[in-house]
Design a protein around this nucleic acid. Structure first.
Lengths: 150, 150
DNA sequence: TATTGTTATACTCTATAACTATA
DNA sequence: TATAGTTATAGAGTATAACAATA
């Protein structure tokens, strides 16, 4: 008795698309009870690491449309997690920075995400997880310097 | 001079989401000049492998909403790639089957996809590609019997 | 005249529910 | 009464282009 399988699953590319869908669903579900959704957490964490980014730089770095970025930061401001200010040296630009509440939210949510991911990947051994981490980093052309996920 | 990187890239889960997005974009772009889009090819290939599937069974197997499946098969019929027929043993059900033109389309498009994917994964060695194939299969709980992508 | 951010619009995708035909 | 498929509708997400402020 063999279970039916989608033949496209023979393609590694298809597998990665499916995994991406599952992991995005996992992220949405994990953050369900929080004030943010995955996209907002991504922006918060990025702002904590790279201070002084304009919205345009944020958009380029995260691959989020500039248009969408406006509403993401609208939401963060409304929730008191981030603040927009004019850049005094170029008043066309906004500098976005994270409030203390935003930092706390990001730290709490990062723990939630790490726990959920650990569970998701637990079917693999620790060594396999590291290997997957490295292979995906290579495909994304990430510099080796990126802190490993452990 | 180090390039700025999205800090979330430290999470393997985030990496897989990003790769999934890139690979879906790649699939869309690869099939741009054809009569189908990735979802239609997925259905065609599945019907060639598993004859006699109803639309409901197709939906469940591929994770495509029953609702969406209607429009996908509408498109395949309009393009002359598949045909819907009533199942004589249960006239509520449709049996969907692929025409000769549909088979040719699927075979041509599968070659296009394999070529595009080979290019995408070419930054990895052959052994690394196989390892990635196996790791993703494990995470998706695929039976080991699935034909490898080589 | 070009750039940053915002707003408006339309287009796609998806999700819910109502509807039909069959069982 | 339940099920397979279809259609209608509304909601979210995204993409394009116009717009305001500033350089």
């Amino acid at each position: 008795m063999e279970a039916r399988v989608a033949p496209m699953a023979a393609h590694t590319g298809y597998r990665l698309i499916k995994l991406g869908e599952q992991l995005l669903d996992l992220a949405e579900h994990t953050l369900e009870a929080t004030a943010v959704r995955p996209r907002h957490l991504n922006v918060l964490v990025t702002l904590l690491e790279h201070a002084e980014l304009s919205q345009l730089e944020l958009s380029a770095l995260l691959g989020i449309d500039v248009n969408t970025m406006v509403t993401v930061i609208d939401h963060l401001e409304r929730e008191g997690l981030a603040v927009r200010e004019r850049n005094p040296r170029d008043r066309r630009r906004h500098v976005v920075w994270v409030t203390e509440a935003g930092r706390a939210e990001a730290e709490r949510d990062t723990v939630l995400m790490r726990t959920a991911e650990a569970e998701f990947f637990s079917v693999l051994t620790s060594g396999e997880q590291t290997h997957l981490h490295d292979l995906t980093g290579c495909l994304l052309r990430l510099p080796a310097a990126v802190v490993p996920d452990s």
